[in-house]
Design a protein around this nucleic acid. Structure first.
Lengths: 209, 209
DNA sequence: TTATAAAAAGGGATTATTCCTGAAACTTTC
DNA sequence: GAAAGTTTCAGGAATAATCCCTTTTTATAA
């Protein structure tokens, strides 16, 4: 019997292509695929075959990779989550690990690495290649922690609101919000709003697009 | 004989998956695939079979979709360019058409639409679905034109430079640069730097990531 | 060559952002 | 309850960004 794999990614063509690759293997087959975490919540409970490994994208419309990973850990802790994303920022890697992912590969990996990751996951329980490992070490070394207020602040700043507007929206004084800004500037090592916003987007800290 | 297809996209896994899908068709086969326009320039001249259709991504490392389309039009005008991108902004669609693309599909299309696009391209010479057509109409109606100076300015603004620094880099006065800013604010209908930068990224006007 | 348009630049004012330092208010911990 | 730490907020100031209006220079066309 082939090992069942699931794919969660919002690009249909990518999903179908990947399924074609996986299904042409003698040992793996795709048992389920959908466009985001919300669709997964509807499909997975009624699925006949539960996947052993689930390929999970991060940036998705209705429910992103972080949230989906948490839901999976709570409801299907035996499913091995393998993150499959274009984002190579250390923060997104570490955040996925903290949320329960067992591996991380980039979309510019090749088929060989994908299957290597599968066997690693099944045999040892995890897979991180050299580059990803280096980013993890770097990320843990920097250990940038962004709290709830700062995340909210970032989201609003990325929605092109002025600090005055953000202060109103968060029911805080402008001075408090200016404190969040200063803290994030230091953490991200930037000196302007644009730099901060671009960092947040690259690190996958905000919902975007 | 099968119709030869080429794929230019910087995500190897996507390329391989797509190739697997296309090769499983009875009428199409992938004759060439590479990661960006620069690689294409090296591979295409020595390729035995030239592709009839070339699938082209926009955001790529060394040479983006716009530039690659121009090179193709100058050197291989018979190859039908089918844009395949995640970007759904009207500006990127129209820009690809102006640069010689004959079709535009999004990565969340499915296999059926891909093959529909292939037959349309071969039979009628072009393919644009309903959504893309609507965006084209909307885009032509707005007709936002961004000139060379403004593009350069946007690129530098997205690199987190101050207007003073941008003025120096462009060998223009700060007042001139402020004029570019004001013009772009009006064109993009934004009122802040962050809004302008995000618009430029979404519209695919700058090299990013 | 003159009319016209476009690009470049300046004057000047308002607002927003960035950067200090420090003081209350509130929590957590011992 | 005192100590230590975090969060919230303030004063004050320099710099940058935004906006409006006008002038000069350059390019283009009639």
């Amino acid at each position: 019997m082939k090992t069942p794999i699931a794919i969660v990614d919002d690009h249909t063509l990518f999903r179908q292509g990947l399924a074609s690759l996986i299904n042409s293997s003698p040992v793996y087959e795709v048992c389920l695929d959908c466009s985001d975490g919300l669709a997964l919540e509807h499909l997975l409970p009624s699925a006949e075959t539960k996947p052993k490994i689930l390929l999970l994208d991060i940036m998705m419309k209705h429910k992103n990779g972080y949230e989906t990973a948490v839901w999976l850990r709570n409801n299907y802790p035996d499913i091995l989550i393998l993150t499959l994303s274009t984002m190579d920022h250390e923060m997104s890697i570490i955040r996925m690990i903290r949320h329960g992912a067992r591996g991380y590969i980039l979309k510019d990996a090749d088929t060989e690495e994908l299957f290597t990751a599968f066997t690693s996951l099944l045999d040892e329980g995890y897979y991180y290649n050299e580059l990803v490992t280096q980013k993890i070490v770097k990320g843990l070394h920097n250990s940038i922690h962004v709290n709830e207020n700062e995340t909210r602040f970032l989201q609003l700043a990325c929605n092109d609101m002025s600090y005055q507007q953000i202060a109103e929206a968060m029911h805080k004084s402008e001075k408090t919000v200016d404190g969040y800004r200063a803290d994030l500037f230091k953490k991200f090592q930037v000196t302007s709003r644009v730099g901060m916003v671009l960092y947040a987007i690259r690190a996958g800290l905000v919902n975007w697009q």
